[in-house]
Nucleic acid binder design. Structure first.
Length: 364
DNA sequence: AAAGCGGGGCG
DNA sequence: CGCCCAGCTTT
């Protein structure tokens, strides 16, 4: 599946796209200045995340860390706290690592060499191509979710875009179509087209600047593309979230340095096979797993939280304890007894903020 | 309930 | 390499 493009078609395609982009591009904060840092920060945030969702976080970050030096001096806990709620938290940890590498190894400038860029943590083919093309106008074609959709319609790609093979062939098409004169604007334009015109539902083909090049449009089959197989279903688990109360303090633990929600602070969890667990069993598990003696005083309503691969149900449990210390850390990095106010600068996941709110409302 | 949105890390 | 893991929003 490799469409042949006559060079005249290519130039017309690029011009139509670039002219449309010039007139219609959204005004976004990272497009305002011609500096690599806003582009870099925004591209990390825009991985797996749509513009509207990333925007408020971008504003917060640029305010707190206006340049690479400020960011490089931040702590991981600080960056994770600011990132909390945006998801895919390894992006935040890699952002900080990369900021430090850029300051120490690259004179505080994003490397122009794609091989060096790809060695930075959190920078893969997409981000390297986006940053190098937008910032330095280097000819690397981006392929993101928008581009998969646009290309699969333009060329009526008959194969499943989840397949590695198909993704490679779309990368090749994109490499061919890229404007070597203006690769930065071209890349932004093709993604913008996918975001605002060539949408998954209700594509606005009437306004599309490259409508005449589109195989799917010619056959009126836009909605058949991209062809994409169904995602596997999520596994369901239940966590008992333990709000362990000792006088005015609550027990918090810090998650392991890698994996889901790495380094986040939360209430200790009991993972049980069954859903309705007797208080006595919770208390004996608490003793066994954490070495803490306590009594269940109240259970709240369950609520769900969905991750990419897990459908998690939380069962809030309030426990009264006289223990001063947690005996077993298990996989956790640290533990501490503290009040909710003392948690301010720590990264806490939404589900656990919800637990705190629920508990606060109870005690009023 | 399902779909949209890239990169790391392992074998 | 291919394959599995990772969050939240919108529809």
């Amino acid at each position: 599946m490799m469409p042949k493009l006559k060079s005249i078609d290519k130039i017309q395609f690029q011009n139509s796209l670039l002219n449309w982009f010039k007139k219609n591009k959204r005004s976004l904060p990272w497009r305002e200045q011609a500096h690599w840092y806003p582009v870099f920060l925004s591209e990390i945030m825009l991985q797996q995340t749509q513009v509207d969702q990333a925007l408020p976080y971008y504003v917060k970050f640029i305010k707190r860390y206006p340049n690479i030096h400020a960011l490089s001096k931040a702590t991981e806990q600080e960056v994770l706290s600011l990132w909390a709620g945006l998801g895919y938290y390894s992006r935040a940890r890699n952002l900080l690592k990369t900021a430090r590498i850029i300051v120490t190894d690259y004179q505080a400038k994003f490397p122009r060499d794609i091989k060096q860029a790809l060695m930075l943590p959190g920078i893969g083919k997409y981000s390297a191509s986006a940053i190098l093309s937008i910032v330095y106008n280097l000819p690397y074609a981006v392929v993101d979710g928008n581009v998969y959709r646009v290309m699969s319609r333009l060329f009526a790609v008959p194969d499943d875009i989840r397949l590695n093979k198909t993704q490679k062939s779309i990368q090749k098409i994109s490499d061919q179509l890229l404007s070597n004169i203006d690769p930065g604007n071209y890349n932004e334009a093709i993604m913008e087209l996918g975001a605002v015109i060539c949408k998954k539902q209700n594509p606005d083909c009437i306004k599309c600047p490259v409508q005449t090049f589109c195989e799917a449009f010619k056959k009126n089959e836009q909605l058949r593309y991209p062809i994409k197989s169904a995602a596997p279903s999520k596994r369901k688990i239940t966590h008992h979230a333990l709000i362990i109360v000792n006088k005015e303090a609550y027990l918090f633990v810090q998650r392991p340095a890698s994996g889901l929600l790495a380094s986040f602070w939360e209430f200790p969890i009991l993972e049980m096979k069954k859903k309705d667990i007797k208080d006595e069993l919770l208390e004996s598990e608490l003793k066994k797993i954490y070495g803490i003696e306590g009594k269940v005083t109240l259970k709240g309503d369950v609520f769900r939280h969905q991750y990419s691969h897990i459908d998690l149900t939380y069962q809030p449990v309030i426990i009264k304890s006289n223990n001063k210390k947690i005996k077993y850390l298990n996989n956790y990095r640290a533990s501490k007894w503290c009040t909710f106010e003392e948690l301010n600068e720590l990264p806490i996941h939404n589900a656990h903020l919800k637990l705190i709110e629920w508990f606060k409302n109870l005690s009023q």
